[in-house]
Structure formats: structure tokens, C-alpha cells
């Protein structure tokens, strides 16, 4: 395998301003953060903060809940998002504009506004409960606000566009003649979907999953408002330790752990994505 040169030298210079910006405002603070996570109480270098994190079952539960939330929201977005992307792909061009708008709508409102919308929907007397009750599906209102389930539902809606968009992009890249070829060889609609369309949209699915997972596990506003302090995730824990309790080194260590978790998932998915892209040109 030849490794293609991504940029010619002259073109790479165009990325210089961005590179400087990222180093100044992203890499440098990250290094400072990592360095401070290794500070001991006395000011020396130690793994104390990390030991403290992993020795406390409460912290481990927060880590597990965060990971689990990421997995659930990713799966939820995939299940809801793929059909929408598929629908979009086969929508006549004149309807695509309005559909794009509807898909992007969650991203066009501020996360605070969206989240308060969900508070109204998920509350004891909220839309969700009165809807379920009026159809006789439940007798007592179910508790959604301030629960893991509620956070999951709200986050799934909020990050859905980031699953749909990459899948739309990868559907658009599939040569429509492949489906025609499949049909001319006797393949029905299901076979064409499972054997041709789905495998060829794998790169889009992987990008979507990556985005949704990374954004979910690092979300702060939605988990803190919908969770209302009753359920804790890594970002809310970081906030509590770093800003409320002013335990900066500990907050830095939690951040580093969250970062490592995201990186592990990113690498796992990228490896998968690499394999799926190899045969697509």
C-alpha cells in the first residue's frame, strides 16, 4: 500500500494559521491540564489524583454511567437517524430543502433552550406523561426528569443531526447503478439494502457514531439540567470538583480520564472505519 501525500508543501502552508491557533489555544491548555493532574497535594508529582478517582466506587459509577449514556445515545441516534437519512436520500429534490431544515433544527437552537424544552416535555405533568396517560398506557406519571432515561432521550434528540448528516453524505456517494446492478442480478430490495447499501454507508455510520459518542460523553448543559444533580456524569463531576469545590488537580485528572475514554473509542471506531474504507475506492 502506498501512503498518499495528503498535502503538497505549498498547500500545507495554508493550514498554518489554523495550526498556530490550535497549538496556542488547544494543545497548550491541554498540556497544562495534564500536567496539573499529576500534582500531589504537597505540590510534587504523583499519581495520587488518579488513584483517588479509581478507589472510589462512586466515581467509577459515574465513569460507567457516562460510557453507558454514550453507547445508548449513539445506538438511539443510529436507529432513529438511518431511516431519516435513507428517506432524505430518496426524497425528490424539491422537498430536500425543507427536510434539511427539519433535520438541522435541533442544531439551530441554543442548547439551553432545547434543554428547557425537554424539561417541559419530560416533567411529571409534562407532555410525555399526559400523552401516555391520556392513551391509558400508564396509570401513574413515570419519572423521567432527573433520571438517566430522561437525559438519554433528550441527548438522542439533540445529537441526532450529527448522525444523520454523515450518513446522508455516504449515501450520496453510492453509485445508483450499484442498486440497479443488484436488481438486474435478481437481488430484491432487502438484499440490495443489506448487501450493498448498508456496507457502503459504513464510513458514514462510523463518523456519525464517533461524533455522537464524543459529544454525548462530554455534554454538560443537558445532563446538568435534565439530570438536575440527581444523576452525575463525567462533565458534571468535573464541574463540581473544579469549579464548585475548587479541587483543580482532581478535576484535571477526571478530565484526562474522560479524554482517554473518548480517545479509546475514537481509535476503535477509526480502525473499523479504516477497514470499511479500504475497499471503497
Amino acid at each position: 500500500m502506498k501512503i498518499p501525500k495528503l498535502f503538497a508543501p505549498r498547500e500545507s502552508q495554508l493550514a498554518l494559521p489554523l495550526a498556530i491557533f490550535l497549538h496556542l489555544f488547544y494543545v497548550a491548555p491541554l498540556i497544562v491540564l495534564l500536567a496539573s493532574s499529576f500534582q500531589s497535594r504537597e505540590g510534587g508529582v504523583s499519581l495520587g489524583q488518579y488513584l483517588q478517582f479509581f478507589q472510589d466506587a462512586v466515581n467509577l459509577k459515574v465513569l460507567a454511567d457516562t460510557f453507558w449514556l454514550g453507547v445508548q445515545v449513539t445506538i438511539g441516534c443510529l436507529i432513529l437517524g438511518y431511516p431519516v437519512a435513507y428517506l432524505y436520500h430518496y426524497t425528490p429534490a424539491k422537498w430536500k430543502g425543507i427536510l434539511t431544515f427539519l433535520i438541522l433544527l435541533p442544531l439551530l437552537t441554543s442548547s439551553v433552550v432545547r434543554t428547557f424544552g425537554w424539561v417541559v416535555i419530560l416533567g411529571r405533568q409534562g407532555l410525555m406523561n399526559s400523552f401516555l396517560q391520556s392513551f391509558g398506557l400508564i396509570e401513574e406519571p413515570i419519572r423521567l426528569l432527573f433520571t438517566h432515561k430522561g437525559v438519554m432521550i433528550a441527548m438522542t434528540q439533540i445529537w441526532l443531526p450529527l448522525m444523520i448528516l454523515p450518513i446522508i453524505a455516504s449515501l450520496a456517494q453510492i453509485d445508483p447503478r450499484l442498486a440497479a446492478a443488484s436488481a438486474s442480478l435478481g437481488g430484491g430490495a432487502w438484499r440490495t439494502f443489506w448487501q450493498i447499501t448498508l456496507p457502503l454507508t459504513l464510513p458514514g455510520i462510523i463518523s456519525g457514531c464517533l461524533l455522537v459518542f464524543a459529544l454525548t460523553v462530554s455534554s454538560f448543559v443537558t445532563p446538568s439540567i435534565i439530570g438536575g444533580g440527581q444523576v452525575m456524569y463525567m462533565p458534571t463531576l468535573i464541574y463540581q470538583q473544579g469549579v464548585v469545590l475548587l479541587n483543580r488537580p482532581f478535576a484535571a485528572a477526571i478530565s484526562a480520564i474522560l479524554l482517554v475514554m473518548v480517545l479509546i473509542v475514537v481509535f476503535a471506531f477509526s480502525a473499523l472505519g479504516q477497514r470499511s474504507r479500504e475497499y471503497v475506492r
Partner: peptide, 16 residues
């Protein structure tokens, strides 16, 4: 898919 008509496309349309 039930006509039994095979097609060879200009770009071959092989499954990549």
C-alpha cells in the same frame, strides 16, 4: 429483478 435481463454498465458498476 424478475426479468432475467443482465446489464453491463458503462462504468461496470462492480460492487466495490
Amino acid at each position: 429483478n424478475q426479468r432475467g435481463v443482465g446489464i453491463v454498465f458503462q462504468n461496470y458498476a462492480l460492487f466495490p
